[in-house]
Simulated assay, not measured.
Amino acid sequence: IQLVLERGFPGMVQSFARERLPYPSEAFDLIHCGSCSTSWARKRALHLFEADRILRRGGLFVWSNTSGKEKLWNDMLKAAVSMCWILASRKNKVAIWQKPTNNSCYQLQNHSVFCDPGSPPPDDAWGIPLQACISGPSKLAATSERRSWPTRLLNAMRLKTILSYNSLKLATVEAYEADLNYWKMLTDFYLTSLGPSRIREIRNVLDTNAGYGGFAAALASRNPALSWWVLNVSPVDNPHNHLANIFDRGLLGVYHDWCKALPMYPRSFDLVHASRLFSAKHNCSMVVILLEIDRLLRPGGFAIFRDDIGTLLEVRSIANALHWKTTIQDTDSGPQGKDKVMHSQKTSWQP
Rank of each mutant, 00 (worst) to 15 (best):
V272M: 05
L46P: 00
N155V: 07
L226H: 11
D179Q: 15
L30E: 14
E292L: 08
G300S: 02
L170K: 11
A280D: 15
G59T: 00
P239M: 00
E50H: 09
A79P: 05
G195A: 01
A41M: 02
C105G: 02
S67N: 06
G253S: 04
V233P: 02
R316P: 08
N238A: 09
F61W: 06
D307C: 10
R90Q: 09
S275Y: 07
N155I: 03
K160S: 12
L312I: 11
S148G: 12
M342V: 06
K69S: 01
T327R: 13
Y106P: 00
A244W: 03
L291P: 00
D308Y: 10
A216S: 08
R44P: 02
C36Q: 13
R147M: 08
R267I: 08
I31H: 06
L163G: 06
K43Y: 14
L168R: 10
R203D: 00
N320H: 13
S164Y: 09
Q350G: 09
I328R: 01
L322M: 12
P266Q: 03
K160G: 08
C84F: 03
T208W: 05
M264F: 14
A210P: 03
L271Q: 04
C115T: 09
H343F: 15
I318G: 04
T143W: 00
N110C: 07
D29W: 00
W97G: 03
S15Y: 13
E19T: 15
P239Y: 00
L5V: 11
T151R: 15
S104C: 09
W63V: 01
T187I: 12
K43I: 12
R57K: 12
R146W: 00
S119T: 10
I246E: 06
K99F: 00
S82H: 08
A95I: 02
W97I: 00
S144P: 06
I202E: 01
Y176Q: 13
E6G: 07
E145D: 01
F269E: 02
Q350H: 12
L296Y: 09
G34W: 09
S197G: 06
K340Q: 04
R198V: 15
H242D: 09
S37D: 14
E201M: 12
S89L: 15
